[in-house]
Design a binder for these strands. Structure first.
Lengths: 337, 337
DNA sequence: GAGTCCGATTAGAGCGCTCTAATAGTGATG
DNA sequence: CATCACTATTAGAGCGCTCTAATCGGACTC
């Protein structure tokens, strides 16, 4: 495990100064072809590659972008990361990813850890962490939030209109004839309040009684919410607006385990339109968020702050739409109230 | 966006030397309580946090572990990362994750990018990248491979016995009465050759004719393999041994789209036992790999090299087992050869 | 042949930190 | 009260790099 060669080593081997090697490595224009070749040759022979962190320390700049993923298990984020990567790679930045392990405390750690690399910017995907923490980060470095809204002028946001999305989900179910529609919410998760409000507003709009069951953005929580439902005395709802796709799938699993058929007995609609819902075997009806586009927009936003020095906040608000697949259908005929 | 405070700033504010601040930050024992408190107070007031990279530059050590995830979309890796995090966090190391975007070229970039941070060690999850690249990395830093075998003495490995696992899958299907069993392989993906061999060996052991369809570790590829199957003249197989869970789910989706029922018409068994397969709605029969344990073992292996200076390679080989759920059943009765 | 330019090259300081070696401080000891 | 034995603190060099300012070496002019 020989210690890696440094610029000094390359310089010695190529018979030039360290400064010249630095120029060559950065592709400076005024270097003679002969020296340039000699430096590259020496670098190749030694297996040299620049020490990014020493570079950023010396240059007081960084090409690193930190990405905090609140839940690595949710495919939604993997798809956003795809969009992020596409844009940032092209712009010559590097992504480093950290996970929040589904808890605010974990997210806090992840954000701080990312910050300790002194990145040029940060993108937080679905953060559930306190606003204070986000604010602190945004004071040090440009921050873009995805799937989380904020009033902070120092952070940009990329969101879909979660209120509208949930309302659309309700409209869709009401359109199919449902009246007893329950919402499993995202608990303390990001955007959960908005989706809940959209659901409540939608229900009221149709003159229906909203009913929210506290849940989370995980399959386990979705299954648990169903069990809560089954233990209640009240008649079962004919439809569920789940917090997100993962939650919906957990719910469907629990329903089927309880001998209920989806959508014959109960309709379920998710949220996010992740790859999960696309699978024909799952065939989850859901509300679409354009995940890859969101990643791209987030990357552009952070680059605008980093490279172009923009300081005015940007708020991207995308319009959700319902994707009907096989988990929503008219309610069973005997369910008329 | 004020530039972040440095150790010098903290020292000035606390009325001590920079060296003392450094000692306090590292929790050195021989510092008076009074000074220690003063330093922490000043640090807090300034919002100071140490610059990890300057630290590792100066100390010639690193607490960073690089993790290359070949496919962020595959939940298998998210679960391995859970195990990695649990162990490394406790040991005071930080994880930085990079993705290979499902291509060898992407993995190469990711590995190099990770290396440019001069991490203490690297863990490659399911790498499909060339051995030469792995070897080059292993010359600079301890490397642990998960879900990929190698002969390199410079790298540790954590694997399940893919050959045995596939053979078990075949045994399971044969035990149910299947005889026309097809394998969708993992193409150039890691461990794919081993799983293929286990399948072939298993078939031969039972006196059956192996039949492999080239595929990949993605749902899209699984669906495509089914379509290939349907276009062939030969009678459909009664069972499929899929490359992994994701591939299996893609396959099931395509089968159902074609009007075939699983497991009534065709049985499907996956590989990995990811959270995906656990969902009751999916109910995928599969071959279990203990993902979180694998993450823990990998973390321990890399820490042993980093901290304890182990140089002998370690090979963890875990024993797979079949998990029967709802996608495997006896073949349809009229399918007798 | 002295002077001028301009592109190519380099010396040296410094980024934020750690680490070694030296220094200051504090009692205990004889 | 000088000496010793510690413990607590600090100065200063240096990690691998960039960047500014200085220098070098021709080619060109008059």
């Amino acid at each position: 495990m020989a210690s890696r060669p440094t610029m000094e080593d390359v310089a010695a081997r190529a018979g030039v100064s360290r400064a010249l090697v630095s120029l060559v490595m950065r592709g400076a224009p005024n270097v003679s072809q002969a020296r340039r070749d000699a430096v590259f040759k020496a670098a190749r022979e030694l297996g040299y590659s620049p020490h990014v962190m020493a570079r950023s320390l010396a240059s007081r700049t960084s090409t690193v972008l930190g990405v905090m993923v609140s839940d690595l298990h949710n495919p939604f984020f993997a798809e956003v990361v795809d969009g992020l990567e596409a844009v940032t790679r092209k712009a010559g930045f590097e992504l480093i990813i950290n996970t929040g392990r589904r808890t605010p405390a974990g997210e806090r750690q992840a954000v701080r850890s990312l910050l300790s690399f002194r990145p040029a910017g940060m993108v937080l995907l679905g953060p559930a962490v306190e606003t204070a923490e986000i604010k602190a980060a945004a004071e040090q470095v440009p921050v873009v939030l995805v799937a989380r809204s904020t009033r902070l002028r120092s952070a940009d946001t990329v969101n879909d209109d979660g209120r509208a999305g949930s309302e659309l989900a309700v409209d869709h179910l009401v359109g199919l004839g449902h009246r007893r529609i329950v919402h499993f919410d995202g608990g303390r998760g990001s955007q959960s309040a908005l989706r809940r409000r959209g659901y409540v507003d939608g229900m009221k709009k149709h003159g229906l009684q909203p009913s929210v069951i506290r849940s989370e953005y995980t399959d386990v929580a979705g299954a648990k919410a169903v069990r809560t439902l089954l233990e209640q005395d009240e008649p079962l709802p004919t439809a569920i607006v789940a917090a997100n796709d993962v939650n919906a799938i957990g719910a469907i699993s629990a329903l089927e385990e309880a001998g209920l058929r989806v959508p014959d007995d109960v309709s379920v609609i998710g949220y996010d339109n992740t790859s999960l819902s696309t699978l024909a075997h799952v065939g989850l009806s859901t509300v679409d968020q354009p995940r890859e586009v969101m990643g791209r927009l987030a990357a552009q936003a952070v680059l605008e702050r980093v490279r172009d020095g923009r300081t005015e906040p940007v708020r991207h608000l995308l319009h959700p739409k319902v994707i009907q697949r096989e988990t929503t259908a008219p309610p069973p005929s005997d369910s008329a109230r």
